[in-house]
Design a protein around this nucleic acid. Sequence first.
DNA 1: ATTTTTCTGTTGTTTTTGCAACAATTTTGT
DNA 2: ACAAAATTGTTGCAAAAACAACAGAAAAAT
Lengths: 208, 208
Amino acid sequence: MKDDFNIVEFTKEFSTNCSKVQIKNFEKGETITTFLVNRSQFCILLSGTADLVKYDYNGNKIIAERFSQYSIFGEIFYNINTNNEFIVEAKEKCQVLLYSYDDINEKCKSNCKFHQTLVKYFPDIIISKITDLTSRIELLSRRTTRDKLLGYFDLLSKQYGKSFTLPFSVTELSNYLSVDRSSMSRELAVLKSEKFIEQDRRKIKLLY
Amino acid sequence: MKDDFNIVEFTKEFSTNCSKVQIKNFEKGETITTFLVNRSQFCILLSGTADLVKYDYNGNKIIAERFSQYSIFGEIFYNINTNNEFIVEAKEKCQVLLYSYDDINEKCKSNCKFHQTLVKYFPDIIISKITDLTSRIELLSRRTTRDKLLGYFDLLSKQYGKSFTLPFSVTELSNYLSVDRSSMSRELAVLKSEKFIEQDRRKIKLLY
DNA sequence: ATTTTTCTGTTGTTTTTGCAACAATTTTGT
DNA sequence: ACAAAATTGTTGCAAAAACAACAGAAAAAT
């Protein structure tokens, strides 16, 4: 997201009384929304963390995306079909802005502040989402568990340096990387034995 | 992309004389652009087909994205780092609009038609790109080659029905699904022997 | 038209991953 | 504070995928 993106200005416009916009709170574990039918709704996560999850035929949980502050999500971004139910789960207390639209381009009649602000920041927000998605594709396209792990650690180290705490539990990380938990745990053990990393649960230290 | 998106109107505005916009032609096999440094350029494929490719540490080719008419691409959508060079390759004769910007939001001084049109259609174009990317994530998150193949065939069958020709060669498809070619070929043989599909090179028929 | 190159399908072998089960530890809930 | 539930690390075994090599077919180049 560009530096000149003004989060404060953006969020203070949410105190709109536009009828198509509502702000809701969710507790940890609650379902924020599902992508199953097209409800013409798109959402902005104002605070908290949430995962977009689905389950495959074998019952494996897949974390398709992880949302943090100012992430956007909604059915509009997914090709929905009956075989694929996606669920957005709150991982912690979340505040969510829900925007129901008839036409994403259409301003509401009152031309309220929210819509003006949305239009203004839409490009930045959405480009940020795309870079997230393309990074995720790059990660998932790696063939081995080892490469996925190291690729993910690389992303985190750009932000936090050589030592960091995973934003996922080990189990969740395996769902995010789409690999078996015990296999991933085994690969982590190999990386440790080869002195590539130090790891204790969520604490990671890169030794290269 | 929404029905009311008017491709004709959009493209006829390209005959702009805006200095920041140029249209170039590429022959099959040529490199359209690379993502290595941030050149503040974004591109629209006006005709043809192109792939965004990279090579992993083991020399495996990965097709990260496939672009067709009106796909957009550029460094702005990627977290570029020195380990990851992406190349956009023309798969056939391509016409490409290249737009160099200082600020994606800033209209050029002359407020030319191109920028007006871009601003107008930006939301639709970009939402379309996001649904492509999320579909791709769903595909790559599948754990087995079989599930990836069937998932990809599903996407194609929505568009073309039970019989279709792959937009990829078999080799390219394996790069797109990030699996070994011979393993994929073996899995295709299994699917054939189980009467799930008929296949001869690019020709696929789903029997379910 | 002929040669060269690329693509395709196949198969044996090795490596990696998934699956299942278990004990130990940590977290959560009451 | 205690009990229950979830997470973690580990391992043996089975299944799947990667790797490698090869021959025949198709496509591209000359």
